[in-house]
Design a protein around this nucleic acid. Structure first.
Lengths: 107, 107
DNA sequence: TCACTATATGTCAGTCACCGGCATATGTAG
DNA sequence: CTACATATGCCGGTGACTGACATATAGTGA
């Protein structure tokens, strides 16, 4: 799972959001670092729908504009939780090793 | 940066290793989850050399077999440290949001 | 002896997520 | 009337990763 996808799922973790709101949220979460293109966004949304990790929460028309709201499914929440733990473990290991080799081999 | 590349750099974080040893180390770090194919391995090695994140540490012949050892460059260590911090932050945010929406909206 | 596994390096075609650009439509601000 | 924010969507191209193949030596088990 790549970063844009991970951030997309994270953007849906606290509450349902529609596509455009997800894009803004992803940018906010990443501190402005990741600006999700619509190609990536709607492509990923379609893929995640088919994988059953997200589902359409609601479809409404606001100001004559369609707004499709997405939400995480239970498998989606589980996948995000698992992925978060996985990368956290990898990050810890990387940090630990970087620290260890810099030290005077205390252990 | 994708997971295989991140794990490759992590495998080099504590000490220099040659290609095949990196592959085994990556598998160990990921708990057997990620089995790096040689295509990915040598492709990534070539790419990272050109990016200046790793460099050839030593070339020796052991049992009539060539063994090329790689090590992280200072930019490579910096890149790995930055990436580790980045993904750790994303993981924290994902976990936080997953927890929050599951709670009875205490905040 | 023959087959298989481990060690060790490499190439190459194919896949798939992501990128960048474009298209479309409405409401609002200047 | 132009430009921007909102909102969704398509499409060609890139590039990391996959899976299979190739090569060579040393050790192990049948």
């Amino acid at each position: 799972m790549q970063e844009p996808t991970l951030l997309l799922l994270t953007a849906l973790a606290d509450e349902p959001r529609h596509g455009y709101a997800i894009a803004r949220e992803v940018e906010a979460i990443s501190g402005g670092r990741v600006k999700m293109r619509t190609g990536t966004l709607y492509g990923a949304l379609e893929r995640l729908l088919q994988q059953g990790l997200i589902e359409v929460h609601r479809e409404e028309v606001v100001d004559s504009r369609l707004r499709r709201t997405y939400t995480l499914t239970p498998p989606g929440r589980a996948a995000l939780a698992a992925e978060a733990e996985r990368i956290a473990a990898t990050a810890r290991e990387a940090t630990r090793r970087l620290g260890v080799s810099g030290e005077a081999a205390t252990a």
